[in-house]
């Protein structure tokens, strides 16, 4: 539960960043990358990634297409859009401002 809460609100930011850096990815890859890169600290309730992805897609920040994987199965692959990059930029700025502010309070309180 605790680990999930840590992700609250920041999942879209992470997904956008990941897609911006690592190019088109399917949902499973997004989930494993987030876990792997955060040394398992940020583990999503895996399924909830999908409604989040679909919301981003609905907002027009990412787009999806069906692609064949190495194993020959159909996978839905997501890619960031130009609008998504702009959103990522402003989200990042906001995130940094918030964490900086929280850090300041933790330090000086």
């Amino acid at each position: 539960m605790a680990r999930q809460d840590a992700l609250q609100g920041s999942l879209p930011l992470l997904v956008l960043k990941l897609l911006a850096r690592r190019g088109p990815l399917h949902g499973y890859a997004v989930a494993t990358r987030i876990e792997g890169m955060s040394d398992d600290t940020l583990r999503v309730e895996e399924g909830s990634l999908y409604p989040a992805l679909h919301r981003l897609e609905e907002a027009g920040w990412i787009k999806a297409r069906w692609a064949k994987t190495e194993t020959g199965r159909r996978a839905r692959v997501y890619e960031i859009t130009a609008a998504g990059r702009r959103q990522l930029e402003s989200e990042e700025v906001r995130w940094k401002a918030i964490t900086a502010a929280i850090g300041k309070i933790l330090k000086h309180a």
Binding site: H26, G27, Y28, A31, E46, G47, Y50, R73, R74, R76
Partner: peptide, 12 residues
Amino acid sequence: LDEELQFHIDAR
């Protein structure tokens, strides 16, 4: 939607 979720489950 089912196919997308099933892909994830199978991969895991």
